[in-house]
């Protein structure tokens, strides 16, 4: 079994932190700078560790999200019927464009198929984009590999 190691893994918390800050506390130009920074960090991390299994999926997912964001003025279009079904309360905020980084998906938003269209109506309820799903798959693969690398001493028969 190969030794499991990630280059510059500490970038990751920064990427998350900057994304969280940008979505939760910032708006306007500051939001834009922060979210672009968070994605640059994320893409840098994935590219650096591209050889690690799962990482290509994570990079693909991140890029898909970045493309969707870039096409829509750094906002993520969310599929309105899904939002109506899952969280009707936030519909107003969404349509006003004040709910986090999301905006309502309309005919005038671009690359809608990369937007938040997957409604997961089980806890924790969430609306995901295909990029998020690819990223999650990559993360699962990565974690599984990391765990297998950890149990090196155990006999792996078959």
């Amino acid at each position: 079994m190969e030794k499991f190691s990630l280059k510059l893994w500490w970038i990751l918390p920064f990427a998350y932190l900057s994304q969280h800050i940008s979505i939760a506390y910032l708006s306007g130009r500051a939001y834009e700078v922060m979210i672009v920074l968070s994605y640059i960090l994320m893409i840098a991390f994935c590219s650096l560790n591209f050889k690690v299994s799962g990482m290509p999926w994570m990079l693909g997912g991140t890029l898909a999200n970045v493309v969707a964001l870039a096409a829509n003025g750094l906002r993520m279009p969310a599929y309105v019927p899904a939002v109506r079904m899952m969280a009707p309360k936030i519909l107003g905020q969404l349509e006003a464009g004040t709910y986090g980084k999301s905006i309502a998906m309309t005919a005038s938003t671009h690359l809608n198929f990369l937007g938040d269209i997957f409604a997961f109506n089980v806890y924790p309820q969430s609306l995901l984009s295909v990029g998020d799903i690819l990223f999650s798959i990559g993360l699962v693969v990565l974690i599984q590999n990391a765990m297998r690398a950890g149990s090196k001493g155990r006999a792996v028969d078959a």
Partner: peptide
């Protein structure tokens, strides 16, 4: 052409 729910099915089936 594909609607958004169609896209969801498309992604799921391909996956």
């Amino acid at each position: 052409g594909l609607t958004i729910p169609d896209w969801v099915v498309l992604y799921t089936l391909s996956g």
